[in-house]
Amino acid sequence: GRPPQPKSVEDLLDRINLKEHMPTFLFNGYEDLDTFKLLEEEDLDELNIRDPEHRAVLLTAVELLQEYDSN
């Protein structure tokens, strides 16, 4: 089946190999997954995450988090 739900933002970023963005998220108040899963493209602009590939991966991760919630 699906991988288990990540336990933290750090756990999530670790899985998608984008842990380099951890300080950015923490500094901007994305300390838990409840906050993280509200992330949208405009937020990525504000966080200055410009890499299109990173953005795509992050937004996909957000969608997956929302799916875990609805099940």
Rank of each mutant, 00 (worst) to 15 (best):
M22Q: 09
E63P: 04
L44D: 02
D45P: 02
E63W: 03
F27G: 14
P52A: 09
R15T: 11
N71F: 11
L13Y: 01
S8Q: 06
D69C: 07
K19Y: 06
N17S: 10
T24E: 08
R2W: 05
T60F: 05
L65I: 08
A61F: 03
N28G: 11
L58N: 07
Q5T: 09
L65T: 03
G29R: 01
G29K: 00
N28S: 08
Q5D: 03
H54Y: 02
N17W: 00
T60H: 15
F25Y: 01
P52C: 06
A56S: 13
M22G: 09
E53H: 12
V9G: 01
D43W: 00
L47R: 01
R55V: 06
K37C: 08
D34H: 08
G29L: 01
L26W: 06
T24I: 08
Q66D: 07
Y30H: 04
I16P: 00
L59S: 07
N28H: 14
L47K: 03
L44I: 01
D14P: 02
H21N: 04
N48H: 12
N28R: 05
L38E: 13
L58R: 05
L44P: 03
E41R: 07
E67D: 13
L58H: 06
V62K: 13
L64K: 15
L58K: 06
Q66H: 12
E42R: 14
F25T: 06
L65A: 05
L33H: 03
L64Y: 12
K19P: 10
I49P: 00
R15L: 10
E67Q: 13
F36R: 03
L59K: 10
K37F: 00
L18A: 03
K19A: 12
L47C: 06
Y30L: 06
G1A: 12
E42P: 11
Y30F: 13
E10W: 07
R55S: 04
R2A: 07
L12C: 05
E42M: 07
L39I: 13
L13R: 03
D51K: 08
L39N: 02
M22K: 10
V57M: 14
G29D: 02
K19W: 05
P3A: 11
H54Q: 13
L64P: 06
E31Y: 11
G1L: 13
R50H: 14
I16E: 06
L26M: 12
E20R: 06
R55F: 01
T35W: 00
V62Q: 03
L59A: 06
N71P: 13
I16K: 04
L64T: 14
F27M: 15
V57C: 14
G1D: 15
H54E: 14
K7I: 12
E63C: 07
R55L: 00
P6K: 05
D51Q: 09
L26F: 11
T35A: 14
E40S: 15
D14I: 09
D51M: 02
G1N: 14
E40H: 11
E67T: 12
L39E: 03
L38P: 02
D51P: 01
T60A: 15
L18H: 04
P6V: 11
D69Y: 05
D11E: 14
A56L: 09
S70A: 10
N48A: 09
L47M: 13
E20W: 01
D69M: 02
L33V: 05
R55T: 01
L18N: 03
D51H: 08
E10F: 08
Y30R: 01
D69P: 12
G29T: 01
P52F: 00
P3W: 11
G1E: 14
F27E: 15
L12G: 01
E40Q: 15
D11H: 03
R55M: 01
T35S: 14
D11G: 05
G29I: 01
T60R: 15
D14G: 10
A61T: 07
E53N: 11
V57W: 08
L58G: 05
E42L: 06
V9H: 01
G1T: 13
Y30M: 06
K19Q: 13
L44E: 03
S8W: 00
R50N: 12
R2Q: 08
D43S: 09
N48D: 13
L18I: 04
V57E: 15
L39Y: 00
Y30G: 00
P52Q: 08
L38K: 14
P23Y: 10
E46T: 15
P4F: 15
D32R: 10
F27Y: 14
P6C: 07
D34K: 09
E31H: 15
D11F: 01
S8G: 06
P3M: 13
L64G: 15
G1C: 12
D34F: 01
A56F: 05
P23N: 14
L64D: 15
V9P: 05
N17Y: 01
L26Y: 11
P3G: 12
N48Y: 00
E40V: 12
K19E: 08
H54T: 12
E40C: 15
Q66R: 15
V9A: 02
R2T: 10
I16L: 14
R50L: 14
N17K: 09
L64S: 15
Q66T: 09
T35M: 09
L47T: 04
T60C: 09
K7D: 10
L12N: 03
I49Y: 01
E20D: 07
L26I: 12
I49S: 01
P3F: 13
L65M: 08
L44C: 06
E63V: 02
H21T: 05
Q5A: 09
L64Q: 15
E67Y: 08
D32H: 11
G1M: 13
N17D: 10
E40Y: 02
E63L: 06
H21D: 01
R15G: 09
H21A: 02
E53P: 01
L12P: 01
E67I: 07
D32S: 14
R15S: 14
K7A: 12
P4G: 13
E40G: 14
K7P: 05
T35Y: 06
T24A: 12
M22D: 04
E63H: 12
A56R: 15
R55Q: 07
L44S: 01
G29S: 02
H54A: 11
L38T: 15
L47V: 03
I49W: 02
D45Q: 06
E10T: 06
L38I: 03
L12H: 01
K7V: 11
E40A: 14
D11C: 03
P6M: 10
G1P: 11
L26K: 13
L39D: 03
D43N: 12
L39G: 02
P4S: 12
R55G: 00
P52L: 05
A56E: 14
V57K: 15
E41W: 06
L59V: 04
F36P: 01
P52K: 10
K37R: 10
V62Y: 02
L12R: 03
L65C: 06
P6Q: 04
V57R: 15
R2N: 14
Y30C: 04
G1V: 12
T24N: 09
Y30T: 01
D43E: 07
V9W: 00
D43R: 08
E63T: 10
A56W: 02
L13A: 03
L47H: 03
D11K: 03
L64N: 15
D34N: 11
Q66K: 15
T24L: 09
L26H: 08
L13Q: 08
Q5G: 04
Q66C: 08
E53S: 11
E42W: 05
L58M: 04
A61H: 07
L58S: 07
D32E: 10
D11T: 02
D45E: 10
D69G: 11
P4Q: 14
L65Y: 00
F27N: 15
F36V: 07
H54P: 04
M22Y: 15
